[in-house]
Simulated scan of single mutants.
Amino acid sequence: MDQREIDKDRRRGRAATSNDVGRFEPQTRVAIHDGWDRDEDLPPLRTEVAVERPRRVITRNTSPDVGFDRSVNPYRGCEHGCIYCFARPTHAFLGLSPGLDFETRLIARPAAPEQLARELSAKRYQVAPLAFGTNTDPYQPIEGERAIMRGCLEVLAEFRHPVTIVTKGTLIERDIDILRDLAADNLVRVGISVTTLDPALSRAMEPRVPAPARRLRSIERLSAAGIPVRVMASPMIPALTDHELEPILEAARDAGAQAASYIVLRLPREVSGLFQDWLADARPDRAARVMARVREMHGGRDYDPDWGKRMRGEGPFAKLLAARFDLAVKRLGLATALPPLDCAKFRVPPRQGDQLSLF
C-alpha cells in the first residue's frame, strides 16, 4: 500500500503524507492500479497495535547534550503523529515505515512495569532519574486503555525512584494522584511540550495531540497539585512558529509553569523528507523560507547531528532565538531548569518471602 502520496481521505487525521519503506528494507513497495475498475475506496488507515514482551526496558545513553542517562519507553511508534518527531526513524529498525506506519502501527509493552521492577531490584543498580517520553509519548491515546505508563509510575512510587516525564498528552492528569505523592518527596518533574498556540497549525502538524489551550490547562492542573512543571517550547520551527516563542512562555507561566526550555527543529534521516512533504502539502507558501532558515541553522544541511549544535543550531538566526529566549525567561521570572530530584529515598521494597530487617 506504500506510495509517495497516500490519498488524503485514507490518511485523514494523520500528519505524514507517505509511507515509504524503512531504510533497511531491500525492496520498495509501490501501489499501482491493477486494471480492475472498482467503485469502493480503500478504507482509512486505522491504528494497529502489536504487543512486545521486552527483555529489558531501561535504555542507557551517553549523550552529553541531554539531561539524563537512562530512559523507558512503554510504546514504540506514536499515534500523536507529530510530523517533526525525531523518533520516526526508529521505526525503520522494526522493518516499518517512519511515515504513516509510525503513526498507525504501534508496539505496546504491557510487561514493562514488571520488567522495570526487576531491573530496579538488581543489586548492581545505581539510582539516577529515569526519563519517560524521550522517544515516544507515554501518554499518547493508546495509554488510555493500556495503562502501561501508570503501571510504571506505580513501580517507581513503590521504589521511591526519581522520574522525569515529557509529554503532550493531557492523559497525564489521570495520574495526578501518583505524581502528587512523588512530588511531595521531590521525586518527579514534568515537561509539557507546547509547539504553537495556533489550534489550526497544531491540528495540521501534530494531528492527534490535544489542542494547545488544553495542554496549558494540564500545566495549570499539575501545578495546582504541587507537581513542578516545565514548559517546552519545542521544536521551534523557523519562519513558522518561532514568532510564538514569547507568547508560549507567557501563557505557560500564567498557567503555573516554573521553568522553560526550547530546542530548534531537528530533521534526522527520514524526518527531513517527511517534513518537507508535509510543508509542501500543508503550508506551501512557507516551505522554501522554512527550509532556508533550517539549513542556515545547520551549516547548510537539513540537519547537523553534532553534539552541542543539534539542539540549538548555529548562525545569526539561532543566536537571535537564544537571545530572545533568555530575555523572555528573565522578564517572565521563569527558571531554565527545575531543581535536581532526590535520589536518596530510593529503596527496593521487600518481596514475599524476603527476610525482614531487624533495624
Rank of each mutant, 00 (worst) to 15 (best):
Q3H: 15
D9N: 13
R10Q: 08
R14T: 07
D20N: 12
V21R: 15
R23D: 13
E25N: 14
V30S: 09
D37T: 14
R38Y: 12
E40F: 14
D41P: 15
L42A: 11
P44L: 05
E52C: 09
T59W: 10
S63W: 11
Y75D: 08
G77C: 08
E79S: 05
E103A: 06
A108V: 07
R109Q: 12
A111S: 14
A112M: 01
A117V: 00
A122H: 12
K123Q: 12
Q126Y: 09
A128N: 11
T134C: 12
D137L: 00
P141E: 01
I142W: 07
E143Y: 04
G144A: 15
E145L: 12
I148D: 00
R150D: 10
G151N: 09
L156P: 03
H161E: 07
H161S: 01
P162Y: 02
I165E: 09
I165Q: 06
D175N: 05
N186R: 15
L187T: 04
I192E: 03
D198I: 01
M205R: 07
E206N: 07
P210R: 01
P212L: 03
L216E: 00
L222F: 06
G226M: 04
I227F: 05
P228V: 00
P235F: 09
P238I: 00
A239V: 13
D242K: 02
L245C: 02
E246Y: 11
I248L: 07
L249N: 00
E250S: 10
A255T: 04
A257Q: 05
Q258I: 04
Q258E: 15
A259N: 01
A260N: 06
S261H: 12
Y262E: 08
P268L: 04
R269A: 11
R269L: 14
R269Q: 13
V271T: 00
S272Y: 13
S272R: 14
A280T: 10
A282C: 11
D285A: 15
R286E: 14
A288E: 15
A288N: 13
A288I: 01
V290I: 03
V290C: 01
M291N: 10
M291Q: 13
M291P: 07
V294Q: 07
R295P: 05
G300M: 06
R301G: 14
P305K: 05
W307P: 11
R310Y: 06
A318Q: 04
F325V: 05
L334R: 02
L338Y: 05
L341S: 05
F346D: 03
R347S: 11
L356Q: 11
L356N: 08
